[in-house]
């Protein structure tokens, strides 16, 4: 393809990315580096600040949500949201969770927190699906193959999208309004304490590649268009689409990072690490399902994780 076509594709995917994922890397990095002035995120570093964090979110969000019937559920989910960027005041359904600040045994707190994360993840799957549909040619693929590509791609995409929100000390959540420390996440009871640590390790290394939002958009499309997902019916058109996006990504990297010569190769290598992280993550969720009596998995996530790895 001509360079001009490849650049047009990059622009198109960047626009689709901005449309579907409002918390961009540029915005997240500005927040993390303290360049947003008065709007510094609220820091959650222990149980006490977790409770206060919810209040902080409630105070900020009530004016935005006067019209809404499900105040409390929305706010709880807003508190833990933001892994991967989210629409402020998203209108989608949640699990009927109770507020984190409600009294209850400490044990239940991790589960409630986990449920909020699930709701946010389900919403992110919807955003990722919309992004996928904007990839030229995706919607023309066999519908079964579209389902397969999403089933196997969305968790990888979710993990890549967490990276811009993270640094070595913690992660932004709740649309960048809250910073939750890595130490706090590590202090949760097992196995919750083990969930985020591999993502931090991956993200710190991934962030060293210093991709910008337009390169992130192309990389996400490359991940979605993986022709080696199990059970695909018609691999050829998927590989053709991926090849074009790969050309566009390679060109974009050359233009943006002229001195990082091996960047394209390094980025492609990350896809191997990513698959291992997803496999471990899914096994951890399956373990949770067995060991936690009160655990219920969001129907969309259940659908995705069933018979995955």
């Amino acid at each position: 393809p001509e360079a001009a076509d490849l650049r047009a594709l990059a622009r198109h995917l960047y626009e689709a990315y901005l449309k579907n994922f409002p918390l961009t890397k540029a915005k997240a990095r500005a927040i993390l580096s303290g360049k947003t002035g008065d709007n510094a995120p609220f820091v959650i570093h222990d149980m006490k600040s977790l409770m206060e964090g919810e209040q902080f979110i409630n105070c900020r969000q009530i004016p935005l949500k006067e019209h809404h019937h499900h105040h409390q559920q929305q706010q709880t989910s807003a508190l833990t949201a933001g892994l991967g960027g989210a629409h402020q005041g998203s209108e989608y359904g949640f699990l009927g969770m109770t507020s984190i600040s409600e009294e209850g045994p400490q044990d239940a707190l991790e589960l409630r927190f986990f449920h909020s994360c699930q709701s946010r993840s389900a919403e992110a799957v919807r955003e990722i699906t919309e992004f996928a549909k904007s990839i030229p040619g995706f919607s023309e693929l066999d519908l079964n193959d579209q389902v397969t590509l999403l089933k196997y791609g969305v968790i990888e995409v979710l993990i890549i999208m967490m990276a811009p929100l993270m640094n070595k000390d913690g992660t932004l959540i709740s649309y960048g309004q809250i910073f939750m420390t890595r130490e706090f996440l590590k202090s949760l009871r097992k196995p919750f304490s083990q969930m985020m640590e591999p993502k931090f390790e991956f993200s710190v290394k991934f962030n060293m590649l210093e991709l910008d939002d337009s390169e992130m958009a192309l990389f996400l499309a490359v991940i979605i268009l993986s022709g080696d997902r199990p059970g695909l019916l018609n691999v050829k058109p998927i590989e053709q689409l991926q090849e074009t996006v790969l050309h566009s990504l390679e060109l974009q990297l050359k233009l943006n990072h002229p001195i990082s010569l091996q960047l394209f190769a390094k980025l492609l290598q990350k896809m191997t690490d990513l698959r291992q992280i997803v496999t471990d993550h899914v096994h951890l969720i399956q373990l949770l399902k067995k060991t936690e009596v009160d655990m219920c998995l969001h129907p969309l996530l259940q659908e995705i994780m069933k018979d995955l790895y």
């Binding site: 359904g93 949640f94 549909k133 519908l143 389902v147 999403l150 969001h298 995705i304």
Partner: peptide, 21 residues
Amino acid sequence: LKEKHKILHQLLQNSTSPVDL
């Protein structure tokens, strides 16, 4: 496969209309 993934399928088929997750 579509039958086993009703919500994903629905998300793919519906355009931008909100789906009750």
